[in-house]
Design a protein around this nucleic acid. Structure first.
Lengths: 223, 223
DNA sequence: CTTTTTGTTTATCAAATGATAAATAAGTAT
DNA sequence: ATACTTATTTATCATTTGATAAACAAAAAG
């Protein structure tokens, strides 16, 4: 009933006007993600409207301002695309640690190594806004800290609840994250095609990581 | 009248006007580096002029267009700041390989891990322009390929002239580069203060790198 | 069919912005 | 001093751009 897109119109080929508000809003938001990822937040509303095949003032019926539209883009990409299931993957001790790490990073890479995610994250950072710091704080709390806890457990070290995470430990995790993130930077910001399979790079990096992090873990004697 | 600061008054208390053209041009270029690094290339010429305490049209006496000024900024940062001596450091076989690597990366990091370099490089990448690809091509040719040649030599492997650099080898070098570059991204784009000394991170990364790259070098038997 | 509602477009504003031309004035040469 | 050169400013233009109001038209309601 709410799909009145054509009716007796013989030519549904062309533009369907007068969409349901929620549908139109979704279309605008989706296109805005793609648009701002390409041109940055200085991209003009008229050009966005042109890509949507609507007029520019119509944007303001659905979003009170350009800034509000940008906020929606953040929501769409950095909040909606986070999968809570990742946290479960990391802490599922019925699976070998290395397997968990590889699975998490493969899935995570699958989400962030996209044109939209990488570029929007970088645009946001350059504009400031605190968005990046907020996101990375979440990443640290939900993923990295759990991950270190699991590594501590694996090697029989004290829990992070008893002995706070050290600078060296978190630095190692940042290093792993950097390696993956940089693949996206090379591909989507520098326009340099990757010559290697992402998954195999991840596997190699995780292996190296696990091999190296033992040396920075707190001693067993502690506690 | 208005500006009584004149005469041969040796008191440069207030603004000195009417600078020598080459001097003024240098001042503008220097400030433009700082300005565009902060606001991006969409930063407005009027605001730049305000920071320079000059009027906006004066900019156009020294640079025919905003784009020309931006080109000058690229020159100033990505060309002028490259030190040819780095190439000598890498290939100086009178020095232990690890020492050379650490020295090179410390010096290189000293140049690129700055607010201006990191942000301008990212702004340029997002705007495209091919600047990044061009720069990284140079980095690869002048530094990375030499570096791999030295590693091959150190471990008694065939020269890169006889056996081309492999994808795995160059990927390892990219990984090292990523680790360092990402420090700059964290600090100057995400505004996250680094909790660790950069030099010690570099030392650790180089050590890990040298420990790991053996396994991806071509076999001795080849050739 | 007529009226009402509302998604969409047309017309337009005000401020911002890169750029140019003419006026001004600081320094130099005569 | 006077004339000349030119670094700098004042005034201004033509577009661009985020945003608003009114007009229009496609459905829904009566």
């Amino acid at each position: 009933m709410k799909k009145p897109n054509r009716a007796r119109s013989r030519t549904p080929i062309r533009e369907q006007q007068r969409l349901d508000p929620s549908e139109r809003e979704g279309i605008i938001a989706r296109e805005a993600v793609s648009f701002f990822a390409e041109y940055g937040f200085e991209g003009q509303t008229r050009e966005l409207a042109r890509r949507l095949r609507i007029t520019q003032p119509l944007l303001y019926r659905y979003f009170p301002s350009k800034e509000a539209l940008i906020e929606r883009v953040y929501q769409e990409v950095f909040v909606e695309r986070w999968k809570p299931s990742w946290e479960a993957i990391i802490t599922d001790r019925s699976v070998p640690l290395k397997t968990r790490l590889i699975q998490f990073y493969r899935e995570y890479a699958g989400v962030i190594l996209t044109y939209e995610w990488i570029r929007l994250f970088m645009f946001a950072g350059l504009k400031d806004l605190g968005l990046n710091a907020r996101y990375l704080k979440m990443l640290r709390e939900r993923a990295f800290e759990r991950l270190i806890e699991e590594i501590r457990f694996e090697y029989g070290r004290p829990s992070t609840r008893d002995l706070p995470i050290t600078v060296l430990e978190i630095e190692m995790v940042w290093g792993l994250h950097a390696a993956i993130f940089y693949l996206g930077v090379r591909k989507f910001i520098y326009s340099m095609p990757l010559e290697t399979d992402v998954n195999s790079i991840i596997d190699a990096k995780v292996t190296t990581f696990l091999g190296g992090i033992r040396s920075v873990l707190p001693a067993k004697e502690t506690v």
